[in-house]
């Protein structure tokens, strides 16, 4: 027994340390790359006009945060993405509910939406500039249009995919049509809606990047365009990092919504 324990304890300790080391190991190669990048910049292998050094990027970011420049422009961009997304979710959601709940709604709505969705939204940019000028409107409309489709498609499929047996049971217990929709159809379609919302969030950031190239005088796109004109690669990298953070934040937000509103799902229950 003693012998056994003696050989056993170091083994578990070793595997424990190994776990820590392998957890840390995931960070080793990005860190090495970062150091190589910094070394390349300092020795002049990577000119600053090609790519600024990580230290320079960090310093620029600190300065932009301190001056409020970054915060202000991020808020402007978030406002555009948020407003466009809100309109897209509202329109896509309403259309999906109308098409999903009635045969007449389906014939009236589904085929035109399915046709329109094959258009790449960004190809509409010139048309929107002709219609809405170069102010805020075309940017927001672009985001709204692009986010309408993923919300519509997923929610519509979700509504159509609701378990007919549950609807039947609810009807057998005397629930009105409105009550069936409220208690059975919409909660049943919620997981699909959240998938659509997740797509819509990442699309809104994607469209935001392009939409802000249209003559913006504020926002992340404006910062990037300005930085390009002055070849400030440090500012460009800062903005790219903010875009990445926005994408990650959006995904985390939907995950949080899912955890709270889909708590009944066994996959989440087990986790």
């Amino acid at each position: 027994m003693a012998h056994n324990a003696a050989t056993h304890a170091p083994h578990t300790l070793r595997s424990y340390l190994g776990r820590i080391r392998s957890g840390g190991a995931r960070w080793v190669s990005p860190l090495v790359l970062l150091l190589l990048w910094e070394a390349g910049s300092r020795t002049g292998l990577i000119p600053a006009r090609t790519l600024a050094a990580p230290s320079a990027v960090a310093a620029t970011m600190g300065g932009m945060i301190a001056s409020g420049e970054l915060g202000h422009n991020v808020l402007v961009s978030l406002g555009r993405a948020g407003l466009g997304l809100a309109i897209g979710v509202l329109v896509g959601g309403t259309l999906a509910i109308l098409a999903g709940l009635s045969k007449r709604g389906e014939t009236a709505i589904d085929s035109p939406v399915q046709m329109l969705r094959t258009l790449p939204t960004l190809a509409l940019t010139p048309l929107f500039i002709v219609w809405f000028g170069i102010g805020e409107t075309p940017k927001i409309v672009l985001i709204a249009v692009a986010t309408t489709f993923p919300v519509y498609l997923n929610l519509y499929n979700g509504i159509r995919g609701v378990d007919a047996r549950l609807v039947e049971a609810a009807r057998a217990f005397g629930l009105s049509r409105a009550a069936v929709i409220r208690h059975v159809v919409l909660p049943g379609a919620l997981p699909a809606f959240l998938v659509g919302l997740r797509y819509a969030l990442s699309i809104s950031v994607l469209i935001l990047v392009v939409a802000e190239q249209i003559n913006a005088s504020s926002g992340l796109g404006y910062l990037i365009n300005n930085a390009r004109d002055f070849m400030r690669t440090d500012v460009i990298v800062v903005c790219l990092m903010v875009y990445a953070a926005l994408g990650l934040g959006a995904d985390a937000a939907v995950r949080l919504i899912e955890l709270r509103s889909l708590a009944w799902r066994p996959t989440i229950l087990e986790a």
Binding site: R165, F173, L175, H183, P187, W264
Partner: peptide, 16 residues
């Protein structure tokens, strides 16, 4: 059983 999975058991009992 056809219980609504998104409502806790007692709310299923009182459905409608």
């Amino acid at each position: 059983a056809r219980l609504l999975p998104w409502k806790p058991v007692w709310q299923n009992i009182m459905l409608g």
